[in-house]
Design a protein around this nucleic acid. Structure first.
Lengths: 122, 122
DNA sequence: ACTTTAATGCAACTTAGTTGCACATATAAA
DNA sequence: TTTATATGTGCAACTAAGTTGCATTAAAGT
């Protein structure tokens, strides 16, 4: 996956700031918060949030609120569940497909909250 | 369900403030945020949050973070999924049991995010 | 180059929730 | 009934993620 493909036909100017954000998210193995990536990007947080909002509107990025009051962002791909640890606040993607229908509702994201492997061993 | 049963053997003093919170939650049909119930309770928000934290530790109340940056609280009963609308931020309980296992993990809450019935019709 | 439009940085703001501290209430001991 | 000790409460100040207003800068079209 490369950045040109992501923004293709999305009517978005590819500025330095935007490239930095997308680069970081593309190489991430799990959703990241602003806090997770601020050390690796050079823009102001206002710029970060304005750009991420734009990415979300264009369906390039997708986000959800975790347990730690932070928003987590990932490149929008085929929908998959996420696991959020209520002890250590870590966030993971669940590869397994979770089929679940609810008539009248549209389900966009499934979030499982609980204790992750590490925290279960303590 | 009554309040005496809830706090029985939980080593909790039943003050006026605590009774107010529990009364409200017992009669709620869905999880409520502080914002939802502040008009109906007479205590300071610090007292509310300190008590709700205590209830959570004692497994009387259970909570989760929604999409609107607010925490939603409900009386702790048998675990069930919740639906959170990403458009109108409404929160609902899902009665249907959702079985989902993930080895090594403990799942405490399942949150489905998407569009609710109302918002789907718009 | 000139104009128009969108992007950025900075600082101030918003808001859910937390914390320190003094005062109040309750339970236990004397 | 007083005294001691612990717990609960209100108020105000604080915290931290995210937002907004505004002046400045950069980019794209003519």
């Amino acid at each position: 996956m490369d950045i040109e493909n992501l923004v293709k036909e999305k009517d978005i100017k590819l500025t330095t700031a935007r490239t930095e954000i997308l680069e970081k998210l593309i190489h991430a193995k799990k959703p990241l918060s602003y806090d997770d990536i601020k050390k690796d990007i050079s823009m102001d947080k206002a710029t970060f949030y304005r750009n991420i909002t734009k990415f979300e509107k264009k369906m390039i990025v997708n986000s959800f609120e975790s347990n730690d009051k932070k928003r987590y962002f990932e490149i929008f791909e085929s929908p998959h569940p996420h696991f959020v640890c209520v002890v250590c606040d870590s966030v993971e993607c669940i590869k397994k497909h979770l089929e679940f229908k609810l008539s009248g509702y549209t389900i966009e994201n499934i979030i499982l909250k609980g204790k992750c492997k590490k925290c279960n061993q303590i």
